[in-house]
Design a protein around this nucleic acid. Structure first.
Length: 114
DNA sequence: CGTGTGACGCGAG
DNA sequence: CCTCGCGCCACAC
């Protein structure tokens, strides 16, 4: 087993995240077959390139997992907003934008409104 | 090969 | 809302 395999799985999962949705590190780790290794997801993304939509990965609190003053954080926020993600008080409403694995049989959020 | 650290998660206070 | 401690693993030194 190579370390690249793990990263490859993580990248594969992140690449599956549809635009307009976000996933938490823990969720990505679980979907990648690495339950409890959310940390590795962050580590992997740190070394990933823009070939992966890393900006769709945020922490469980619905916040960007980077210092708000960092350029990467701003780029992430700008990209997410560009995809329709709404930030409220610097936070994302996970109940509305959190991505769910389609293979799980769960349907999209039916919450809509106004 | 031991130690520290990190784009994390979660429970408890 | 917050901080603190623990778990978990790859990687740098």
């Amino acid at each position: 087993m190579k370390p690249e395999s793990r990263r490859a799985r993580i990248f594969a999962v992140v690449a599956r995240i549809p635009a307009g949705c976000v996933a938490t590190y823990g969720q990505v780790a679980r979907l990648a077959g690495l339950p409890g290794q959310a940390r590795q997801v962050g580590y992997a993304l740190h070394g990933c390139r823009d070939v992966v939509p890393w900006h769709r990965v945020i922490n469980a609190r619905g916040r960007i997992a980077l210092p708000g003053h960092s350029t990467a954080a701003m780029t992430q926020r700008r990209r997410l907003e560009s995809e329709g993600i709404i930030f409220l008080q610097g936070r994302i409403d996970l109940d509305r934008f959190k991505w769910e694995n389609p293979d799980s049989g769960a349907d999209q959020n039916s919450e809509t409104s106004p």
